[in-house]
């Protein structure tokens, strides 16, 4: 197996998760409220979703691609709802559920890729390096292109990630 490939895969997935997280964060701030229930919802839902995804990843079958599509669909639905009905705090539980789907993808990623590298620390390192890069891209993308980047960024990275997931290296 190409030894570079697992590193590239984990790093790019880190970028994907960061773009989703920054996208959710900025979109909720713009379309719902800058009050703390909004960013606390992003954090708590993402964390809770990650726990669910982690536990779901213990099973034998691999649903990475399916979950990836669900995660992107959840993000798209969130952006669409926020733009169609802005400032509707009554929809916050729905947004929480949608963010949870994306968080679940992150948790699932770690569970099914435990053996991608020779150690768990390497998996976390590579994913986090990607996350930091994604956070930087997400921030400057939003600064440069504003709200439009929250659609273009995750959609582009989502397509790359889908390709990566479908042809990704199998665990060692």
């Amino acid at each position: 197996m190409n030894t570079i490939w697992p590193g590239v895969y984990a790093t790019l997935m880190g970028i994907h998760f960061a773009l989703l997280q920054t996208g959710y964060f900025f979109e909720l701030q713009i379309g719902l409220t800058a009050a703390y229930p909004s960013f606390i919802t992003v954090i708590l839902s993402w964390l809770a979703g990650s726990v669910i995804g982690l536990r779901a990843g213990r099973g034998g079958a691999d649903y990475s691609l399916l979950l990836h599509v669900a995660s992107l669909a959840a993000y798209g639905a969130c952006v669409l709802l926020l733009n169609t009905w802005p400032y509707q705090t009554g929809l916050l539980p729905l947004y929480a559920a949608l963010i949870m789907v994306s968080g679940a993808q992150a948790g699932y990623f770690f569970a099914v890729n435990t053996k991608l590298f020779s150690s768990v620390s390497r998996l976390f390192l590579m994913e986090n390096n990607g996350f930091v890069a994604g956070w930087i891209i997400g921030f400057f993308g939003f600064v440069a292109f504003g709200h439009s980047f929250d659609i273009i960024g995750p959609a582009t990275m989502g397509a790359v990630s889908a390709w990566l997931i479908s042809g990704r290296p199998r665990p060692l």
Binding site: G57, V112, S119, V120
Partner: peptide, 17 residues
């Protein structure tokens, strides 16, 4: 701490989860 403990348990999926 997390990756250190997970690796010391063999780095299997169950432990990490």
């Amino acid at each position: 701490l997390l990756p250190r403990f997970a690796d010391s348990r063999g780095g299997d999926t169950g432990s990490l989860v």
